[in-house]
């Protein structure tokens, strides 16, 4: 399923099992379970999906189908500082594409990729609802509003010493 092969540690395995138990092994709670696991692991590699499928006694294909349907779920790890560029309409008409281009250029990665040192990953999202601040960029939990292409370098430099 995924090109990344990982081995789950015993405590990670236990966390997945405990989570499934917490939701009563109810297949209807699959999305809630996946939310909790992604919060914990940062992403949902196929190994995690297999364990969930086993615990809930549903086909792995069903879990995979749900994970790939929803854009919130990801099968590749995000960077230490995930960068999200809002491409909602309000940000679009206020120049969000230029901001995105500038991030791509500065980091030399494409949308959906991470920098080789796993420090930054770059993604787009649709409307965080802070349209008054458009164009908006989120890095982790922090929101940057009214961003201009010239600001990008400065924003990235805030994370330089980490």
């Amino acid at each position: 399923m995924s090109h990344i092969k990982i081995k789950l540690h015993e405590n990670q395995l236990q966390f997945i099992k405990d989570t499934c138990k917490e939701f009563n092994y109810e297949p209807g709670e699959l999305i809630n379970i996946l939310h909790k696991l992604q919060d914990k692991f940062g992403y949902l590699p196929s190994e995690v999906q297999e364990v969930v499928a086993n615990e809930l006694k549903i086909p792995t294909a069903k879990v995979f189908g749900v994970v790939t349907f929803y854009s919130y779920f990801t099968m590749v790890p995000k960077g230490k500082y995930p960068i999200n560029i809002c491409l909602g309409t309000a940000c679009y008409v206020r120049g969000a594409e230029k901001i995105l281009d500038e991030f791509k250029k500065q980091l030399n990665i494409k949308v959906g990729e991470s920098t080789p040192d796993s420090k930054f990953s770059l993604n787009c999202l649709r409307c965080v609802g802070a349209c008054g601040l458009a164009p908006v960029v989120m890095i982790g939990e922090k929101t940057y509003g009214r961003v201009a292409p010239d600001d990008v370098k400065k924003i990235l430099s805030e994370y330089q010493n980490d």
Binding site: N32, H35, Y70, S71, Y72, F73, R126
Partner: peptide, 8 residues
């Protein structure tokens, strides 16, 4: 509460 996961 039930959570969406990013699908319009």
């Amino acid at each position: 509460l039930r959570y969406g996961a990013g699908a319009f």
